[in-house]
Write a protein that binds this DNA or RNA. Structure first.
Length: 649
RNA sequence: GGGCGGGUAGCCUAGCACGGAUAGGGCGCAAGCCUCCUAAGCUUGCGGUCGUGGGUUCAAAUCCCACCCCGCCCGCCA
């Protein structure tokens, strides 16, 4: 017999027999729901009900007496996976599974379904777009931003395994002042030849140019302020200026040549700030020269991103340019349509969207989870100079996405909750309430460095590349220590999946809503609660199976009586439940946690009990089947979070 | 000021949606275990006012209220 969810079979059976018993014993009482819970320890069975504690209020007896009456009324002829039911503690009803049958069901299901085991399919196989990463093409991906692709990719993998058709989209935010800053610096340098990794090269140009432009702008402002002797203004500007000057010193030290060159070239210019703005407007207007420069620098940066991300096993189905939406008039169309709604008004030359009015009129407060007295901030759609803003363009982009999928998951930092809320409200205003309902903002918390926030504008960040490099380097040292006999090539291969796995795991494992302070030992952990630990456990399982060199032909599952074996069995049987929960709640960290817990149990088992040499052979066979199932489940979990499951390490 | 998220041992973290039996792990620290299937492992020990105070309940880390601390957002930035 094979089941896609062995534990659910047991649960269903328990619910059914208990439900019938209740109807029989207390036909007159209303039982709101029958939720069974997992008892804290094996000795209390595998599922339990605490309903008797509640029932006491309606029936005048102690919970324990009620539990016993109910147990007596259970229809034992319907027991299949249930071995026995016992009253315990103050009045719990504990269901004990028949391990002989349950082990057979679980192990056979896992081994037969193999690569599909655990991946219970959804009833509604929708098309889903998962937009993630979408790092602006300005500088290398830094470790703060790296939480996004790790989470996004894991979510995409989980949803795909759940049976959805998933498209992974990268939104390239090339419209805006920052890309113009780089293009400006790049042009000043006379389209220089790329040195090193392209995104790192572009990042340098961006940081220096942006710093110089900023200093230049502040100096001009200072002159103006001095002319009218605005003392307060002067101190404020001076403070900002000091700050940027210190950044300039840092940059000059880090990149002396490039800094000097840009400094010289930009000084020649009359008004860099103005040049940048002009370039930005030209790009939004689709002028050829601007297009050439900005697309070129963006492409260079993206080339570097692809390199970085593919190293981490993160891939995309579509790369969507924000500028395309501007040039194709989609944004203009949306604006036209928004203008016909009663929610848009012109205010001193700008176009503003009254989100609060929409919420009130369509009665969305409760639906959007807002407090009754909370007022949604209005959103500016169009600047006085006629250019659009990010969220405005995002409305067009979102509608485009909904032409391709029924559901959209945006993996975006939680600092953008307001913008995402306004976006959702705009969809309601345009009459796309269904889209709004199917738009999910997967918000995750920030990654900071100890003591300060990463700042890409100031060039203060640790790149994902250097984190992966360091992790692989450390992993190599470990491999060399542990397996000196391997060839250099083999060591490198292992070091790669170990190091990169460790980084991925570290960024996936923590609950996304928690803030993370980046420390090297968080990502360089190769011991317990890390990808290498799980990978090692997987390799160990493979090793046993390899050494056994036989198939478990006559497994006697009823011989798996050890507590350790039963705990593993339960974990294996519960994997489908965990998977469904992770998919429905979009919680990749549940998968990481589960994998770690299973590896933990497996290692304890490994040390305590022999497999190949176990006697009699039927027991050995049963344990081999158990090890094989552990191998399958560990591999399936690692695949879900994008980590290599190695056969040796 | 308003909104959102977080607060669990020296440090990191699970559990919170849907209240249940002794609050699980990891790091670090101390002591052990490789003539035996991979020691990136295992065993044992030390370490807890679950931010604070109330409330609801047979039962609260979990639900409700108030407060405190940290972070983020409240732009004609993205």
């Amino acid at each position: 017999m094979v089941s896609e969810n062995p534990f659910a079979e047991f649960r269903l059976e328990c619910e059914n027999v208990l439900g019938e018993a209740i109807k029989k014993v207390f036909p007159e009482f209303y039982i709101p729901r029958l939720t069974l819970e997992r008892p804290p320890s094996l000795e209390f069975g595998q599922l339990a009900s605490s309903m008797c504690f509640e029932l006491v209020k309606q029936v005048g007896e102690t919970p324990l007496v009620l539990a016993e009456r109910l147990i007596k009324a259970l229809d034992k002829s319907k027991f299949s996976l249930i071995e026995r039911v016992a009253a315990a503690g103050e009045g719990y009803i504990n269901f004990h599974v028949d391990f002989a049958k349950f082990s057979a069901l679980t192990l056979e299901s896992a081994r037969q379904l193999d690569a599909e085991y655990g991946f219970v399919k959804t009833q509604e196989p929708l098309k889903i777009i998962v937009e993630h990463t979408s790092v602006n093409p300005l500088h290398p991906i830094h470790i703060g931003q790296a939480r996004n692709p790790m989470l996004g990719d894991a979510i995409a993998r989980i949803l795909k395994s759940r049976g959805y058709t998933v498209f992974r989209h990268y939104y390239i935010d090339d419209v805006g002042r920052q890309t113009a800053v780089i293009a400006y610096g790049y042009e000043k340098l006379g389209k220089p030849k790329t040195e090193g990794k392209p995104d790192h090269f572009i990042g340098k140009i961006y940081t220096i140019t942006s710093c110089l432009v900023e200093i230049n702008r502040l100096k001009r402002e200072l002159e103006l302020a001095k002319a009218v002797s605005a003392t307060e203004e002067i101190t404020k500007i001076n403070r900002e200026l000091d700050d940027w000057v210190s950044v300039a010193f840092e940059l000059k030290e880090k990149f002396p040549e490039l800094f000097e060159e840009l400094l010289e070239k930009i000084r020649e210019n009359e008004d860099p700030e103005n040049m940048v703005n002009k370039l930005n407007r030209a790009y939004e207007a689709g002028e050829e020269k601007a297009k050439q420069f900005i697309r070129e620098v963006s492409e260079l940066c993206l080339q570097g991103f692809r390199e970085t991300l593919s190293r981490a096993e993160v891939f995309y189905d579509s790369w969507d340019w924000e500028s395309d939406f501007v040039w194709s008039n989609r944004v203009t169309e949306i604006l036209q349509r928004l203008k016909t709604t009663p929610y848009v008004l012109t205010l001193g030359g700008i176009l503003e969207f009254d989100a609060e009015k929409v919420v009130k009129k369509l009665n969305l407060k409760e639906k959007l989870g807002l407090r009754e007295d909370y007022e949604v901030t209005p959103l500016t759609l169009v600047r006085a100079d006629g250019t659009t803003l990010y969220t405005t363009r995002d409305i067009a982009y979102t509608l485009w996405k909904f032409e391709r999928a029924e559901k959209v998951v945006n993996v975006i930092g939680m600092e953008q909750v307001l913008a995402q809320l306004q976006l959702k409200i705009a969809l309601h205003a345009l009459g796309y309430s269904k889209y709004a309902d199917n738009l999910i903002h997967f918000a995750y918390n920030l990654v900071t460095l100890p003591g300060y926030k990463m700042s890409s504008r100031r060039g203060r960040y640790i790149t994902l590349d250097e984190v992966m490099d360091e992790a692989v380097k450390r992993a190599y040292e470990e491999v060399a220590k542990r397996s000196p006999q391997l060839s250099g090539k083999e060591k490198q291969k292992i070091a790669n999946f170990v190091g990169i796995g460790a980084v991925r795991y570290a960024l996936t494992e923590v609950d996304p809503s928690k803030p993370v302070v980046f420390t090297w030992d968080r990502v360089l952990n190769f011991e317990k609660n890390s990808a290498p630990y799980i990978q090692y456990s997987h390799a160990r399982a493979c090793s046993i199976l390899r050494k056994a060199a036989r198939k478990p032909e006559k497994p006697a599952y009823d011989l798996l009586k050890e507590k350790l074996e039963r705990e593993i069995l339960l974990a294996l049987a519960s994997f489908p439940d965990i998977f469904v929960e992770a998919a429905e709640l979009l919680k990749p960290n549940l998968i990481a946690d589960f994998a770690n817990a299973l590896a933990d149990k497996f290692n304890t088992f490994y040390n305590a009990l022999p497999v190949i040499k176990a006697e009699p052979q039927e027991l050995s066979d049963a344990r081999l089947a158990l090890v094989d199932a552990v191998r399958i489940v560990l591999r399936n979990t690692l695949n879900l979070i994008g980590i290599v499951a190695p056969e040796r390490m």
